[in-house]
Design a protein around this nucleic acid. Sequence first.
DNA 1: GCGCTCCGCGCC
DNA 2: AAAGGGCGCGGAGCGC
Length: 583
Amino acid sequence: MLTLLTRKNIEKAIRHLASDEHFTCDTETYGLGWLDKAFMTGFRHQDGTCYYSREGDKDYEFLIREIIIGTKDICTPVFANPKFDLHRLEWLTGYRFERVHDVIALDHLINPQELTHRLKAIGGRLFGAEEEAEKNAIDAWFIECNDKKKEFWKLPDEILLPYFEQDLVLTNKVFWKLYPQLGNYPKLPELYELEMQVVDVVTRMEKAGVLVDKKYLTKFRAVLEKDQAKLIKELRKGFSVSEDFNFNSSDQLGDLLYNQLGCEVLYTTEKGAPSCNDEALKHIQHPYIESLRAFKLNETYLTKFVDPWLNFSKHDGKLHACFNTMGAVSGRFTCEMPNMQQIMKDPKITRGLMVTPGKVCGHSDLSQIEMVGAAWYTRDDQMLSSLKAGTDLHRDTAANLFNIKPEDVTKHQRQIAKGMNFSVVYGCGKKRLASFLSNHTGVPVPLAEAEYARSMYHGKYPEIRMFSYSVMDTIKRRRDRIIKNYFGRRYFIPTGKEYVGVNRLVQGWAAYVTKYAMARIGPKLNWKTNWMNCQVHDMISWECDIKDQKDVQVMIEKDMTTWPEFDVPIKVDTSILRDTWEA
DNA sequence: GCGCTCCGCGCC
DNA sequence: AAAGGGCGCGGAGCGC
């Protein structure tokens, strides 16, 4: 039953909604962007009463605000993907729901074997194919009105409301199907609670954002443009190609280098084509190859950082990236618009991000957390003792592999050892291992050599081999092919991919060490003079007043590292940034 | 003009 | 025997 909210019925609506432990909530918006307004908001009580208000209705913002204030401390709203709704509701009313439920998160945790976790897909899976009548009515209206952009805010109530209500009904149905199932799995109720706390922290973090130095970036952009124009001229001459040759095209470049100039093919792409990546270019003998590499690096600067940052920071000079708390199967976040997890560690780029004036910024990094996780899971003595002693893990590994003293390890040997250590955590096959070793030693490493290195490594680290065999064995024995990490996160491993098991456990373990830290830290920050503004897997970025730096840093470091149940050294390194993110 | 794959490349 | 960790995103090229 649809009920339009008014000043007259608002008190009754609040009492009604607050009379139950949960109600479902959803918003419809003008677009997918940060500042796109929620033009309609609805709240549905379990008994079927659906309260709604729409922009243009009398007192829209006021009524929604009253509902939030009147219910937020009494009951818990249920969403499908709450993060966007939370942002929009806060932007609309100035208030936020702090405790929420999310049916999408429930589905990720309970049904890791499923490929998609969209609301409609979950509904179809749990309750069979749904009625499409409401959606069909919408499509028909757009066709009738010849509206190709399909802007939902244009839809009249009688078309939009049934569709809107249907989503709220489905969200409720999915919630009551999945929520009771949490208890079927060890630690999953606690893990779900954590995820919901993380949603609150992440929305605050996204709202804080990261300040961009537009002046610097604009200047840098001009320099790059000039540089590129010069390089293009030089490259055209150096490689004797016409003006329509595109140095950004791997197809054209491959043809030029390998067919016309007859360069030897040392590297191929995934699909077998001669590769034009930087590793391949490095090994090509040509007087202009360095200019080509410089050109490609500049392109990376421009297209992946300078331009996106200038565009995304249009409104308030900040990057408000979207962190998806359920984005990666392991439990890690993903990040987009822009992706803050792939920012080049190049001072020319990090210089473009600013510390809020008057504040300090801390980057607190869990040191070698995935290696710590690997050591904890495998119980490998050598790895554990190296980490406990605080010595250089990769150097110690190299000393062990090559039967030499740590102080005699060369840079080259350390790189190989590092590659081997990472290949455990990543669950690499030999091809990947070979290319990793090639990249990190500067010398092409043949497959056979990579395989030999693997067997050497396993010989020296029997516990690691035993652990990875036992994980693969467990997966094969499980009928549901699901394994779970220490924190209760469950991973579905498809047939033939058993080798990724170790990676899921270790990467997921590390991801949740950070997530728990965020959930602990979030409530201790006031988000007015101190806040988090970014997370990159094992690094938390935060800002605070200069005078509070010590206190905040101590608090954050403590919350990141306090793990009595793990007998491995979980340590954090914090670097303090003053003006920009340039190290 | 859109959606797709491939390639390349940044990060942990 | 082969297997090739987790991501997002921009450009090229292609087909519709």
